[in-house]
Design a protein around this nucleic acid. Sequence first.
DNA 1: GGACTGTATTTCGGTAGCGAAATTTTGGCA
DNA 2: TGCCAAAATTTCGCTACCGAAATACAGTCC
Lengths: 175, 175
Amino acid sequence: MPEHPTPQPHPPRDWTDGHVERWLPVLADLDPDIEGAVTRMSRLTHHLGRVREQGVSDYGLHKHEFDTLHVLAGRGGHAAPSDLRADLNLAPASVTGRLESLERRGFVLRTPSTEDRRKVDIVLTEAGRAAWQEALDVVGREERRLLGVLSEDERRTLSGLLRKVMLAQEATAGG
Amino acid sequence: MPEHPTPQPHPPRDWTDGHVERWLPVLADLDPDIEGAVTRMSRLTHHLGRVREQGVSDYGLHKHEFDTLHVLAGRGGHAAPSDLRADLNLAPASVTGRLESLERRGFVLRTPSTEDRRKVDIVLTEAGRAAWQEALDVVGREERRLLGVLSEDERRTLSGLLRKVMLAQEATAGG
DNA sequence: GGACTGTATTTCGGTAGCGAAATTTTGGCA
DNA sequence: TGCCAAAATTTCGCTACCGAAATACAGTCC
């Protein structure tokens, strides 16, 4: 699409603009910027998830599998299920399910911890690390492509504003 | 942790700062602002979803049920399943499932369209509208609370930056 | 007007997620 | 030592979601 000659500061409308506009007459006290921001974040998160799912499938992985291996690799290749629970924002039961299938595929090892027998050590195997590294590059690509339309300053601003919001959230939710 | 005496403009660190910091030595080419923004959006979206689920449960609804009624109400009380599919970012099969349970509970009616017999008209019933309105107030509260830590200008900036990103997304995804 | 392409919705089979309860272990404390 | 609350993980029952195929209808082309 070529540049428009009009020098207006208004960017073109995205899907969410239409969504918010439909709602304004119904809910007069709706703040368009709050609704707009929340809606866009939700849709973007959703989209990136889909792209990840589709991207890592070329390497025989699912999004959840990749994400789990990713967190594990980020922690040096070993972690407790409760670490994964926190990092991945999951219910405890879901972690068990994910580890089950990763173990079946030989990507992680589950060994009872020696120091505290309630705990379990999750260890990334060589096969797991290899699968992760292969898919790694694909995953960040869409994020870079989309966030790349912002300047460096804008990205810093975006991240900073979101940090403010998250601090408010974490202050109440205990972590 | 008490305040540091340094007068830097750095806000306190949120969870994501620690996450990104853990990753930097492992993936040197990671852009902290991209990773930070994406991570925060994902976590915020997740959090708001949980709060919605918990909030609307006081009115006997689930998050999905409320969201579906919400979209329906926003479209004047009637829509086609494919409209809901687009608005809710769902697979076609999922819409059927949602409507099934909403119909069982008497919140929507499914009547075959007279003009195009492939289509189905989804109509919000009085009971559906009542359930929606009761829960309505709760849902926006957490969004307002969290986004409320930003100034009006900041919220406009946030929403605007996200619009830019979404335009890049929608340009390729055809929707 | 009959075959053909495209669109709207549902059905089917399978997976992942959640909440709640159970299990095992720990660390304190009498 | 024996009891007990708290913590880490798993099991269980259930629901929602997805992809792919099926069904039913609409509009078009010859």
